[in-house]
Design a protein around this nucleic acid. Structure first.
Lengths: 191, 191
DNA sequence: TTTTATAATGAATAAATATTCACTTATCTT
DNA sequence: AAGATAAGTGAATATTTATTCATTATAAAA
């Protein structure tokens, strides 16, 4: 009973926090600034989050699940390996490139000391379908019989790196480059 | 004339800072702790560094140059492409794996808002020989004629990713895995 | 409409911590 | 050996900032 929490305020806090963290890093993040940017009072932030650390953890989880949802769109384990591989690779790349700052945040904070073990594990679990897909590719002799973790590193690494280049404006990733990148990825792991 | 700065103290400060940043992140870094860990007085840190930000920037530069020096060891642009490529790839991977935390620090802070533009550029320049090597490989038709940045991303990305896995203890990178990783790298970019 | 539980506020509080500085110590020069 | 210059110290200061809390506003339930 009584008044309910406002989902819009929650989202406003998330957005404000992301923006500030990207601009100034975690150490530059002030709860007062978050509140100001979100258009609410300082104390209100503490109604939605226990403390600063909780806020960062929840933000991470929020962004990560939106992210996973986006690149897993239309994924269906029963489809042939190559279809799923191509689709997943492109979607992961495109989603990452479309919001490079969010990707950078997710990448950076996954290893930061701020994330709780629990949140880290939750994020880890979201990669499961990718592991399973590669296992399938190996079983069908389409992919080199190397450790799955190695293959994952080989596939995700270049995308992460490209996203960073792209975000820095050092190198623009267009359609053509994306196709070239996919070719590199596939040439790399195909058996 | 008069007393000179003590290089051992400088290094002690660097080491203390690195250790603390790795454990608690930049936001958890306290100048008092740095001094304590380095076995000197708080004020002394300010004789060696202007402020906290300067300390982080200088630390980055210090680690980066040691890092580059280590993996560039024995590099000689006049040797055949494949020799240099193999050597550089292995050295980069081994150096990174040998000190995964330092590598993580370098990777993470390269994109952080704390690094000054100048330091960032200096770091960027250190990659030049790698760019030149790949350009040579393309010119000799040994490597796919794709943008150099794309090839760099394809080569460095997986190593960075592997180092992270390795550091987390999620996946142990031994001799065999390293050979497999090299094979993936080469299969990927060879023309 | 009244009651009630909870959201929202933001000034005040409580810490935390970067930085300074008056003073001491060490080392170099003459 | 004396003087000069800069390193080294760490308690005191200044500042920044997370968090609290007394109070008010709001929406759901009775």
């Amino acid at each position: 009973m009584a008044r309910e929490k406002d989902i819009d305020k929650l989202h406003a806090i998330y957005k404000a926090t992301l923006q500030l963290v990207l601009k100034q890093g975690f150490s530059g993040l002030r709860m007062g600034d978050v509140a100001k940017e979100a258009g609410i009072a300082t104390g209100t932030v503490y109604i939605y989050f226990q403390d600063k650390n909780d806020l960062i953890n929840q933000l991470y989880l929020w962004l990560k699940s939106r992210n996973v949802e986006a690149y897993m769109l239309g994924y269906d384990a029963s489809k042939p390996f190559m279809n799923n591989f191509r689709q997943l690779w492109y979607q992961y790349a495109q989603v990452s490139l479309a919001a490079p700052q969010e990707s950078a945040f997710l990448e950076q904070y996954y290893r930061s000391p701020f994330l709780s073990e629990e949140v880290r594990n939750t994020a880890e679990n979201m990669l499961k379908p990718i592991y399973e897909l590669l296992a399938k590719g190996k079983a069908e002799h389409l992919v080199k019989d190397f450790p799955t973790e190695l293959l994952i590193a080989q596939l995700m690494g270049p995308i992460h790196e490209l996203v960073k280049f792209h975000a820095e404006g050092k190198f623009s990733v267009d359609e053509i480059v994306l196709e070239q990148a996919f070719r590199l990825a596939w040439d790399s792991i195909k058996s």
